[in-house]
Nucleic acid binder design. Sequence first.
DNA 1: CGAAACTTTGCACAGTCTGCAAGATCGCCT
DNA 2: AGGCGATCTTGCAGACTGTGCAAAGTTTCG
Lengths: 216, 216
Amino acid sequence: MTLDSPPADGGLRDRKKRRTRTALATAALRLVAEHGLDQVTVEEISAAADVSSRTFFNYFPSKDDALVGDQAALNGRFVARLAEVPPEVPALAAVRAALGEVIEELQEDRELWLLRMDVVMRNPALLPRLIAAGAEAERALTDVVAARVGVPADHGFPALLTTVTGAAFRVAALRWAATAGARPLADLVDEAFDALAAGLPDPGPAPEFHPSRTPS
Amino acid sequence: MTLDSPPADGGLRDRKKRRTRTALATAALRLVAEHGLDQVTVEEISAAADVSSRTFFNYFPSKDDALVGDQAALNGRFVARLAEVPPEVPALAAVRAALGEVIEELQEDRELWLLRMDVVMRNPALLPRLIAAGAEAERALTDVVAARVGVPADHGFPALLTTVTGAAFRVAALRWAATAGARPLADLVDEAFDALAAGLPDPGPAPEFHPSRTPS
DNA sequence: CGAAACTTTGCACAGTCTGCAAGATCGCCT
DNA sequence: AGGCGATCTTGCAGACTGTGCAAAGTTTCG
């Protein structure tokens, strides 16, 4: 009978778990950032977080997962936000709007995400993992988009939109990290989505006129 | 030993290597298609190809690599094709044109690629690997695009274009396999690129109507 | 306090992947 | 032929990832 009062936020047990989880994740990021992915073992990460290596696998199913973070949760929130955008808004704009709120979340853990992106860039083997995490929720996202624009399931548009926008966001995020966050992530995402909405035209000397581009 | 096949195109040794390589790759695909990725070990694959498991790793750096195939070579040829497209052609159209020739190559091994895509879809853990293979050559591709449109290295356009087109192609390829190749891959790719060039507009309720809108 | 629930940990084990050192095979040259 | 060098295969030892299981050690709650 006494099995449903887990103090999800106030209990000591829960706090300990959260602390251990972030300790493992940050230790992993720090070590890999310094020594490289292949030069760091789970045992070293666990030692740095003061737990056994067996415990590591109680928290993360693999070494990579500790590095790329909980993308699934992020994606879940993103889908929820997308569902809130009024249906009249075109799909691309809707995704963009929903993404705006996700970006704000990332800003709250700015340093962590910058480090994470840095690690991913320096260890390309992780890039697939980053994408894979998104790929799972991508199906849910695809369904939402399909319902939104009202097309049959065999239509290619929803899948195209989700993977393409995902790719665009990833590029923006990596670019963000490449410059150590000098330009706001929101700017880079806007730029990418503007290009997408315009049909990916060649940049460079425009035939007629330039959009507002401050003279350097 | 009866010898009736003198060194035709590469010598007996080369032919043997090629045979072993394809034997391993096809055995891997066949076994995984039937039993699932986790239920097939390298040892079983090697046995099916009549070599030792150690030899397997002389041919492929990992189990997954035997399944996703030599994407690097494919990508290399793609980059070469792209360089041949006249510089006046806008980047998006140029990529599309170069892709057309790659598609023809895939058609030559139609069954193999259909099986491969089928295996990837049924074993999502492989999807990242598929993307990873492309990600490596993506940098080279990014350079070609950057030179093509003549933008500075810190510009985001080349990276955006390459990852987005890569994603679009992947979606088309998976969709192709999902229908067992009923529609030509070229059609699906065209459809995706048309949508990209148009800025990903909502595919509104077209002039054609849907006879049944109720789910039952 | 004491029982129940949960977490950590050690241990054993399967599987992937890498060096290394034979041994077998092939290509080539005299 | 015959043999030498290059290449390929194989077995073996070993490191590392990841999982199942049962014995501790904690936390929670009555």
